[in-house]
Simulated scan of single mutants.
Amino acid sequence: MKGLTVKQPWAWAIINGGKLIENRKQVWRYRGPLAIHAGRTWSDRGAASDLVHAAWGQHGPNGGVQAGLLQQHWFTQGSVIGVVDLVDCHVAHGCCAPWGESGEGRITHLVLENPRPVAPIPCSGALGLWTVPEYVMQRLSIAGVV
Rank of each mutant, 00 (worst) to 15 (best):
S49A: 05
E113N: 11
C89E: 02
V83C: 02
G68H: 07
L70F: 05
A92E: 15
A35K: 00
A55K: 08
G82N: 01
H59Q: 11
T41G: 10
G68C: 10
Q58R: 14
L112Q: 08
V80T: 06
S102D: 15
T108K: 12
V84D: 02
V80R: 01
A67N: 03
L69A: 13
Q71W: 00
I81M: 00
V27P: 07
V80N: 02
L51G: 07
P98K: 00
R45S: 11
C95D: 15
Q58T: 07
A54C: 14
L20G: 08
G68K: 09
W28N: 06
N114Q: 14
S102Q: 13
R40G: 12
I21W: 03
W99C: 10
S49D: 07
H59F: 13
L51N: 09
A54D: 15
A47P: 00
G46T: 07
L110D: 05
V111G: 11
G105S: 10
G103K: 05
C95L: 06
V84I: 01
W42T: 11
L34N: 11
I36N: 03
R116N: 08
P98H: 01
H59W: 10
L70Y: 09
W56S: 10
E22R: 01
E113I: 10
V65F: 00
G64M: 07
G100H: 06
G46W: 02
D50R: 15
V91D: 10
G103N: 08
W56I: 12
W56K: 08
